[in-house]
Structures are given as C-alpha cells and as structure tokens.
Design a protein around this nucleic acid. Sequence first.
DNA 1: CGCGGGTTTGATGATGCTCAAGCCCGGTGG
DNA 2: CCACCGGGCTTGAGCATCATCAAACCCGCG
Lengths: 194, 194
Amino acid sequence: MYDALIKYFNSYASRPLTGGEIDLIQGFFTPKKLRKRQYFLQEGEVCKYTSFIIKGAMRQYTVDEKGEEHIIKLFLENWWASDRESLMNKTPSIYFIDAWEDTEVLLVSKTDLAVLIDRTPTLAEWIRKLDTNFAIASQRRLNAAISLSAEERFHDLQKTNPAFLQRFPQHIIASYLGINRETLSRIRRRAVKK
Amino acid sequence: MYDALIKYFNSYASRPLTGGEIDLIQGFFTPKKLRKRQYFLQEGEVCKYTSFIIKGAMRQYTVDEKGEEHIIKLFLENWWASDRESLMNKTPSIYFIDAWEDTEVLLVSKTDLAVLIDRTPTLAEWIRKLDTNFAIASQRRLNAAISLSAEERFHDLQKTNPAFLQRFPQHIIASYLGINRETLSRIRRRAVKK
DNA sequence: CGCGGGTTTGATGATGCTCAAGCCCGGTGG
DNA sequence: CCACCGGGCTTGAGCATCATCAAACCCGCG
C-alpha cells in the first residue's frame, strides 16, 4: 500500500528513509479510493488534503460560464494532486479535481505534511526538488502555450507526456492543449498521413 | 543597498531577521549593475546566479528559428530573476534574460543561497512560500493562456499586473500575452472606445 | 533634419472555432 | 439477438479571430 510512496520518496533522497521515518510517514497518510468521476475537490470548497496517486488517473480543471471544462493538469501514478492555492490560503478553490479512472490515493493534510517535512530531512529535500521541478515544467508548458501552434503543441505533448495519450480520451487531451476536439482530430489525421 | 532585500525577506518572515543574520546575508549577495539591453543570461550558457532586483526591469524569453522573441516572464523591483532549470541541473539554458531598463541587482550563487537557507530559518520559510506562490501564479497564468481569448488575456493582465503596462512597451506586452503587436493595438483601441 | 524605436491602420489570408451531422463501438434491455 | 443509447471520434461548411505584410505615423534625440 505504502510501498509506492516510500519508493517514490527514496527516489528523491540522497540517503534512504530509515525504518522510523517510514513508520512516521505511514502514520500520517491515509488511503482512499475514488471511483471514476468522483470529485476529490469541487469549485468553492477549501482543499484540505494533498493526495499521492498510487493507481489511477485524475484531472484538474476549471468550468467557465458556458459550462465548458478547461483542463489545467492531468495526473497519473506517482503524481501529487491538490490545489495548493486553496490549501495554503484556506480559500475556496476555483478548480475541480476528479478521478478519471478508478483511483487509489494516499491523503495527507497540510499540517501533517508540514510536520513530516519538519521531522524528516529527506522530505525537506524532496519538497524543494518537487517545487523546483514544478517550476521548470510550468515554465516549459507556458512557453509551449504561448509560442507554439496547436499542431506543434500536440507533437510536444507526444514527446513530453506520451502516457497521457494512452490514458485520457482525445477531448480531454484537446482541452489540456487549449484546442477543441475537432481541431485535434484533424491534427491527428494529418500526422498519420505522413 | 541591501535595505530592500532585508525588508523583502522580513515581509515573508514570522519573526524579523536578527543583526547576525543580516550580516550573513549581506556577505553572500553581491551588487551588480546592468545597462539596458545587457544580458544577465544567454541561451546556451549555464545560469550561475539568482538575482534580486533592487531597481529596474528585466525580461526572460526564448528566441525561435525565425528570430522571434517569446517573452516568458517579466520582472520588476523585488522580484527574482534566474533560470532555475539551468541553475539546478547545471545545464545550458534555453532562455535569455536581459535588462529592459538600467537595473541594479543583488546576485547570489546557488551554493551560497543553499547555505543561507540552511542557516537562517527565516529564509527557509521564505523559499517555501515563494515556491508556493510561484506555483499558484503559474497555474493561473496557464489557465488564462489556455482558456481565454487574446482580448480577455489582456484585460486579465490589466487587473493582475498593471505595473507591466507602465514599464514595458506594447510589443513586449503582446509577446508576453502570446499575441502580436498589431492585435494588441487593435484590442486597446476597442477597449478605449467603450 | 533625419533616424530609430515604437505604434497604428488597412488589406488579405491562415488557423482554429462553431455548428451540424454521421459513424463507430460497447453496453443494456426488450 | 437485435434495437437502441451514450460516449467518443470524425468530417464538412462557414465563420471569427488573429497573424502577416506593407505602409504610414509619431516623437524624442543626435
């Protein structure tokens, strides 16, 4: 159950977690199962937990006045899903987060995570690296969104996150890329031809 | 010289910096002046320093095959400019960073900053908050880039970063928004009419 | 005065969106 | 076993938005 989490933390660590640390971590994370389409967070709620995905797939998105969903992020195994803004500031979220497949996660509250980070240097190291990686990825994705055409963005995604294409239907991918279903369909047709 | 920096750190702290800590910080940051158009970082270089802007304005951008600049970020006083990806991984940067006005910055190397964070809890607190804020801002900007039209993005910028409009010319703003100069010009004309 | 950097304007065209229809496929119920 | 339904994908026609190209303008400065 917790194996994936421990393995994940160790992959970021310069020294593996001790038995005591592992016990500590296990005490703070609680498992939860989400059915497909089940909300982890709804717009207007305050986000209470960060979730680590053991198995499954999730998405984070906004819904505009016309009822259209705009996918902000997609998550698979070994990713973290939460709305940090809502979590940090205790403000109502502007995002939805839900499961796209039946999903198993490990939950941890903001305060518990802070305690863990405080007590285990390995986790302090981890969160710094995670934040950095996130910053880097955001930068790159923003660059793609601003400077590439729809077609180029799709090919960029094929390179950087091919797994998404296997796990999410096309209309989700299209939204993630900021284009619409029909356009993506045409782009793919053109790509196959060559 | 260092006042702005100390004041800035204190604004993030739950307890003000002690005299000793201030001395420590001052020892690690070195002042530098950049003329307008002077590079802080060029594509292909490895980024060595993080710079804190005392006075002035900077921009971070990529240049595509056609020689077009795509503005990724804009910086003003009390912001931090660096390419974290290059800095962390010691890899050649894919970005340019330069001064848009004559600018004064305080430089700190990666290792020095790590030492500082290690020794002063206030800075450890600061970097966590900074990373979080950055994550939040990226999320929002990405959302804007994906789900808003050119016109909406401009009005969003007017709300969220009005200072940019005062300090940078329109073609820079246009690039930052991912649209071209002419389009921005027309958007503004329409906005004035109303 | 002329030059450079920046902005505006117009004409034209590509890119991507909207709307509408049809197809494919797996699941459900008569 | 077949009909039907829903979700997802494709296709086409027409249109809006935005980019491109070219020209002119504006203004501060040497």
